[in-house]
Simulated assay, not measured.
Amino acid sequence: MLRIAVQSKGRLFDDTMNLLSESDIRITPSKRTLLVKSSNFPLEVLFLRDDDIPQSVANGVADIGVVGENEFCEQQEDAEIIERLGFSKCRLSLAIPKTEEYSGIEYFKGKKIATSYPTILRDFLKSKGVNADIHVITGSVEISPGIGLADAIFDIVSSGSTLVHNNLKEVKVIMNSEALLIGNKQMGVDKKAILKDMLFRFAAVRSAMGKKYVMMNAPKDKVKEITEVLPGIKSPTIIPLADTDWCSIHTVLHEKRFWEIIGKLKELGAQGILVSPIEKMIL
């Protein structure tokens, strides 16, 4: 049985549980239960605070864990990064009152900065030769300048709306963060085998994200031109039809270029274009 530590609530919880669900690993969370077993996969989920996850994995309380890169870097626990998961993206930034003039990193010399990430901030300021007073806060860091507790903040930024609401402006991005899958360095062979199976499922789900399966009928004399505009995984599938002058072409398109490519296909004579969502894709 493999044990994974997962944040007990918030966006990272939602994104992680969605990934497990899409990988057909069934988990039924309960508000009263911290440890829940999957009903169809050798996995149990341990629900923890985000800042407890790195230590739990490093100490072997959990075999693996999903944690924000920002929290992993802050805690500096002896666990290894297994995979970047690509969701729950944010950034850690310095922000100051919007009425202040920002002249560069030297602005923070002698300033009091409120943060929940003192280790990351201290290392950054040291690398820039800036001495500042770091005030550690757990909770609503963004209100600190408004109540006179600090001159600036160093905190997580996603959309930036919280900064705007508190009359702050982002002036320096220190690091970008996303969800990481981390692992205990002493994991046994049996648990590594379960992990390998789980990662295979994760890869299939993530490969399908943002992609569509496209089928169309096309005149045979246009096949070469059509296939040249199709960015297929290897090459599109071409199937003969009852009408010998026509064929069916199947391929996978990324949503980012979908409408651009569909327009070109119609210009080249493609008809009956059918678009389907992709649940999983094995590469």
Rank of each mutant, 00 (worst) to 15 (best):
A79D: 05
K89I: 11
G146N: 05
S93E: 08
I143M: 04
Y117V: 00
N131T: 15
P118L: 04
E80Q: 12
V136S: 14
S144T: 06
P97R: 12
G104N: 11
E106V: 15
D133C: 01
R91I: 05
A95P: 13
F154V: 06
T115D: 05
V141R: 07
A95K: 09
I134E: 04
A95L: 13
F124D: 11
Y102T: 01
F108C: 02
R91L: 09
F124H: 09
S88I: 03
L85T: 07
I147G: 04
E101F: 14
A132Q: 07
S144F: 00
E71A: 15
G148D: 12
R84I: 03
F72E: 04
S127N: 14
G104E: 13
N70P: 00
C73G: 08
S88L: 00
L92D: 08
L121Q: 03
F87M: 05
G139S: 02
E83V: 06
S158W: 06
G86I: 10
K112W: 00
S116F: 02
A79S: 13
L85D: 13
Y107S: 05
Y102S: 08
E77G: 01
N70V: 08
F72C: 09
E142P: 13
S140V: 12
D133E: 12
S158K: 09
P145M: 03
Y102Q: 10
A152M: 08
I120V: 05
K112H: 06
K98M: 11
I143R: 10
E71M: 14
K128W: 03
L85P: 14
P118N: 00
K89M: 06
A132S: 09
S93I: 01
I147S: 04
V130Y: 10
F87P: 07
R91G: 06
G148Y: 10
N131I: 14
I96H: 01
T119D: 01
I81R: 10
K128A: 09
F108N: 04
Q75V: 03
D133M: 15
I105K: 00
F124W: 11
G129I: 07
S127E: 15
V157C: 12
T99E: 08
K98F: 06
V67N: 05
Y117E: 12
F154L: 10
G110N: 12
L125D: 01
E100V: 14
A114S: 01
I134C: 14
I81V: 15
P118M: 02
R84N: 10
K112Y: 01
